[in-house]
């Protein structure tokens, strides 16, 4: 139960961070991606702040033998720079550029703009499941 409560709190910190950062506004996100137009560099500061805090804290967290509420740290094990990594990321970038929405902000605006975001979320999950099938075929 305490695990669920901390996960809930962490999720809301994430959602509030996205809201303050301006990441929930697709138009602002596309303003950042529009490098060759009227460019709004703000979101580089989102990435900067996020990576900075996480990178500093990560060193201390990793000194622990185990996480506070779990038996082990589960870190990504793959180190290969392979075709799926690059092709998948390119496909994701096209979708991100088309609508200005990546998965975090989609979840965080589900109730703020349910009418638009619920069908978007449904199709995002459909794409995820198709992608999982593709990955299973490849391995």
């Amino acid at each position: 139960m305490t695990r669920l409560i901390t996960a809930l709190i962490i999720g809301s910190v994430f959602g509030i961070g996205l809201a303050i950062a301006g990441m929930l506004n697709p138009s602002k996100v596309v303003g950042f991606l529009d490098v060759f137009g009227d460019w709004d560099p703000s979101l580089a500061f989102v990435m900067g702040g996020g990576v900075l805090v996480n990178a500093i804290g990560h060193r201390f967290v990793m000194k622990r033998k185990a996480p506070i509420q779990s038996a082990t740290f589960s870190m990504p094990t793959s180190t290969n720079i392979d075709k799926p990594l690059v092709i998948g990321s390119v496909i994701f970038g096209v979708g991100w550029g088309l609508a200005g929405l990546c998965p975090g902000p989609v979840v965080a605006s589900l109730l703020l703009n349910g009418q638009a975001m619920l069908p978007f979320f449904g199709l995002l999950i459909t794409g995820l499941l198709v992608g999982q099938i593709v990955m299973r075929r490849l391995t």
Partner: peptide, 12 residues
């Protein structure tokens, strides 16, 4: 866009 975001993040 929604479908591509899901597909791309799963593969990538």
């Amino acid at each position: 866009a929604a479908f591509l975001v899901g597909l791309g993040t799963a593969i990538g």
